[in-house]
Design a binder for these strands. Structure first.
Lengths: 90, 90
DNA sequence: ACAATACTTAGACAATTGTATAAATGTCTG
DNA sequence: CAGACATTTATACAATTGTCTAAGTATTGT
């Protein structure tokens, strides 16, 4: 399990971004306007999430659309279930 | 979901400690001797894990025994499954 | 080609964190 | 109670991180 993954999840702004993306895919701008911090700061967070492979991007003209990489989340769930959760009541 | 929880999981030494504890309960000393860092540093990590409620302690004479708090891990799994994982193949 | 829009990257800085050493606390045994 | 052992707490410091502003890249429309 990648170190970058857990480091990415450690920041509350990034977790909020992931929750927004769990509702639907969004562009960088749509995400950024939801936060009280600078546009560039959100972009930095998006870069961290992408580096952890938690999100993927697709360019759409001038926009860049972000979406969750659900595969990685499944791996996270598996990581916790197999190692730490009690086996018979997850 | 507590911020302290994700911050606690962000450090690789702490995740290693949790994996050791998933095998069996151990005293602070038994844990510390497994790592190349100072005893006091491991103790600090244990404090962080305890602050995040990921582990619990029990004094046994001079020793302090650490154990996983599996309840919290179940909450983590639930958090990821409900929000991020695709619903039908976790 | 130029300007506007959308977004990222670079550089700087303050806050947080991981580690170390040293001192303190708690427990047992003689 | 003194000394040994187990562990935590205090303090300091270097490394990492989150944020900002400014500059750069990419795309679209005129």
């Amino acid at each position: 399990m990648e170190d970058s993954l857990f480091r990415a999840l450690a920041d509350p702004t990034r977790r909020k971004i992931l929750e927004l993306l769990s509702e639907k895919d969004r562009t960088a701008g749509e995400i950024a306007e939801r936060f009280p911090i600078a546009f560039a700061s959100v972009s930095h967070h998006l870069g961290v999430l992408k580096g952890a492979d938690l999100v993927a991007t697709e360019r759409e003209g001038q926009f860049i659309r972000y979406r969750l990489n659900t595969t990685v989340f499944q791996e996270v769930v598996r990581y916790f279930m197999t190692r730490f959760s009690e086996k018979n009541n997850a």
